[in-house]
């Protein structure tokens, strides 16, 4: 059970696809101009990732290793097209706001990466959890990155957009001390933001590691001095 939890949770922090594995840079950099775009891309990717992980895991026994990459690509492209079609038929409104992101998913190497590195070696259940966790981790990262760029670049957070229906919070108008910095929405801002995020994450990770190490040292220290007291008891 704890393994299932680990496979699910690793996508959020320890093996976060964007920040740690640094995969899927094309959608990450291109699409996160607003929080809503990040959310849309993240959710669409997650659906395809879960589907392709499960199917790749199901057929892992019958695919000869020499043709596995083309086979995975066929599976992924099929999934992307099916998601695209069923979304347009079933939820036309959502498709109109997400439709542009969906073809981009085929070229997202997170999906092929998980198929190759995880689903082709693990059971269906674990692959499902891996896909779900990685997909959610990707979604959260893209949403936060999108919100960060949008706040700095446009002074807003957009949660939902569809033609005239807009759910958006205006945080500041761009006058006075808080000035809009358009560059954060433009392509260079994507690199700046991602750089800042990765740096912050690394700082936290290093600090955590050091604290863990210190705690471990303390325990070791204690156990080295303690035996004489514990043994008699």
């Amino acid at each position: 059970m704890s393994r299932a939890r680990d496979e699910f949770l690793k996508g959020f922090w320890k093996e976060n696809p964007t920040m740690v594995l640094v995969l899927g840079m094309c959608p990450t950099l291109a699409v996160t101009t607003s929080a809503f775009n990040g959310l849309g891309m993240g959710i669409a990717t997650m659906v395809v990732l879960v589907g392709s992980n499960v199917v790749v895991s199901l057929i892992r026994g019958i695919i000869p290793k020499k043709v596995r990459i083309p086979a995975y690509v066929v599976v992924i492209a099929t999934f992307v097209t099916l998601v695209d079609m069923s979304l347009e038929a079933g939820m036309y409104n959502l498709h109109r706001s997400l439709g542009l992101f969906i073809p981009l998913i085929v070229v997202n190497c997170i999906i092929l990466g998980r198929a190759e590195a995880f689903a082709s070696k693990n059971s269906v259940g674990m692959s499902f959890l891996d896909g779900l966790g990685m997909g959610l981790g990707f979604t959260v990262t893209l949403f936060v990155l999108g919100a960060f760029r949008e706040i700095l670049g446009n002074g807003t957070v957009t949660a939902f957009v569809y033609q005239d229906t807009i759910v958006q919070w205006h945080l500041y108008s761009g006058a006075g001390v808080l000035h809009k910095t358009l560059v954060f929405i433009l392509p260079p801002g994507a690199f700046f933001s991602l750089g800042i995020f990765v740096a912050v994450m690394n700082v936290i990770k290093t600090r955590r590691k050091r604290l863990d190490q210190e705690a471990l040292d303390k325990v070791n220290e204690a156990s080295r001095t303690a035996p004489s007291l514990q043994q008699p008891a």
Binding site: P64, A77, L82
Partner: peptide, 16 residues
Amino acid sequence: VLTGVCLVAGVALAGG
């Protein structure tokens, strides 16, 4: 095998 995978994918897409 690869042809089989593509056939199944094609059938799935046609059905979809």
